[in-house]
Design a protein around this nucleic acid. Structure first.
Length: 221
DNA sequence: ATCCCGACAG
DNA sequence: CTGTCAGGAT
């Protein structure tokens, strides 16, 4: 009887340890992976990459960006001037090229009118949702919008930050709990991405080898 | 076969 | 809320 009681106490204390602060998650990710220095590319290329990477692996996006770069198509006006079928062919490796070609042109039209758009300006563009808008705002325009993607939701729920699947919830969650710091926002999102790819994978997460498994609710199930 | 830093239309 | 868009890596 005493042992059962002890075990329940022990279990409770473990649960409390799982409930860590997002700051602590950030600190541990940063300690393990180091700075990601994730603002590759020049200016508008970041915005292009943000669109091309919608539901698409970055390795495929890199091929498309290379094609664009080799043809001098990283400039909004040049993109608008070029034949759309040519544009589609260049970005083909990134997938969804029919719609993404149009999405890019929509973004270019906005950018020519206003190269420092607001969040609402971006969301008004057909093809730019919240994640893409926030990526552009954070990594290109240096506006502190916390980027929430499928990886962020997956890791947050697994590690034990109880919450729904809705990205809007997690955006508020992180923006309330984290210090409003551009560099931290940038690094944190980048760290969540690399961690989701290397350990916290969708089907086969590598919990045994994961450096966070003692802090993670998912690895204890 | 499954997944990839989603967004939009129906 | 569900179907659709799509090539590329594993």
């Amino acid at each position: 009887m005493l042992i059962i009681y002890w075990n329940s106490i022990n279990h409770l204390s473990k649960c409390e340890m799982i409930d860590m602060h997002p700051q602590e998650l950030f600190r541990k990710l940063f300690a393990f992976y180091g700075p990601q220095n994730w603002w590759p590319g020049e200016d508008f290329e970041i915005a292009i990459g943000a669109v091309l990477t919608q539901n698409t692996s970055w390795s495929n996006v890199e091929k498309a960006l290379q094609n664009l770069k080799q043809n001098g198509l990283l400039d909004p006006q040049v993109i608008l001037n070029c034949d759309i079928e040519f544009l589609k062919r260049l970005i083909k490796p990134a997938g969804f090229y029919n719609q993404k070609a149009n999405y890019l042109r929509n973004l270019c039209s906005l950018w020519i009118k206003n190269s420092s758009p607001s969040r609402d300006d971006l969301l008004a563009v057909k093809g730019i949702g919240e994640e893409t808008a926030d990526s552009i705002l954070l990594y290109l325009l240096n506006i502190p919008e916390f980027v929430i993607d499928a990886y962020t939701v997956r890791i947050s729920k697994r590690i034990g930050f109880n919450g729904p699947d809705e990205k809007s919830y997690w955006k508020r969650f992180y923006q309330v709990k984290m210090k409003k710091d551009i560099q931290v926002y940038k690094e944190f999102h980048a760290l969540l991405v690399i961690h989701a790819k290397e350990y916290c994978k969708k089907r086969t997460p590598l919990c045994k080898e994961c450096f966070l498994n003692e802090d993670c609710a998912y690895s204890k199930k």
